[in-house]
Design a protein around this nucleic acid. Structure first.
Lengths: 146, 146
DNA sequence: GTCTCTGCAAATCATTTGCAGGCTG
DNA sequence: CAGCCTGCAAATGATTTGCAGAGAC
């Protein structure tokens, strides 16, 4: 999602477009992968002095609530990325090195999965973790999810 | 897993078998689903006075490190349950009402999933959330994973 | 008796909230 | 100008750690 689209989305819902939010939008528009609150704080701090942590949290939450950002609970904490533009139901392959996500159009539930007797599925998760083509070569050893 | 098995596992690795750990083992052996650190603290407090939170955390961590307990990161926090005895690779269907887990023998990766170009899968998650047969009827409305 | 385990209290760490002044529309 | 947004500081909640005494083997 482009920074401008995010800003428009905020503006459309009556939110103020501040310097911070502009910077935040740009940051996520350019980020290759997920960012934690701390990542955002540190990144924004570079181009934007006198920033406070709570404002970062507040904005992340606001943007997530209006579906501009996607939140993902990793084992080592919560991270965010711009909402993916992919349409239709899909899942993700997440690179453990660059944390970039790739769409996986396949959904396990589209085929007949043998469920427990009488189990009524409401929601599901299907995620692949590994190394993408670009990171594969140099990511031999290191880079765990945590 | 039976309480006695858990206790034996601890004993075998040179850990002391204390009242607390016995109680903890019994608790997990009987628990139908996942328990958070707080759940454990509250449950154990009932049958075991003068208990401290940090000891609960310590024991949960120790038991998890020796694969007696399984840790699961829910969106509303970390929870534990006795390691499932199911053999072979499998996934889980988790009831949002009772939090009991059911084995799902199917694995999406066993069939040809179309992966992103050059993506090398290291790890994957596949989980179903919903209501089990027992909870289905009365769980109409409420009980989200949060 | 030795070494691990426990409770207590204090330290972290991530996240949230109250408040008064600053900036956007 | 009114109301939302921000920084500051303090509150909160979850988890960890240091320490000295209690209990397991």
């Amino acid at each position: 999602m482009l920074a401008q689209e995010m800003i428009d989305a905020m503006s459309k819902r009556g939110l103020r477009v501040t310097d911070q939010r502009r910077t935040l939008a740009r940051l996520f528009a350019e980020a290759p992968g997920y960012l934690s609150a701390k990542d955002v704080y540190e990144e924004m701090g570079k181009t934007y002095g006198g920033l406070s942590f709570d404002t970062v949290y507040r904005n992340l939450r606001v943007l997530q609530e209006m579906d501009v950002l996607e939140q993902f609970v990793f084992e080592d904490g919560v991270k965010f990325k711009a909402h993916c533009r992919e349409h239709g139901h899909h899942h993700h392959a997440i690179c453990l090195h660059c944390e970039k996500t790739y769409a996986v159009p396949f959904c396990p539930l589209d085929i007949q999965v043998e469920l427990p007797q009488g189990f009524n599925v409401v929601k599901h998760k299907f995620e692949l973790f590994g190394y993408c083509e670009a990171c594969g070569p140099q990511a031999e050893a290191g880079g765990a999810e945590r």
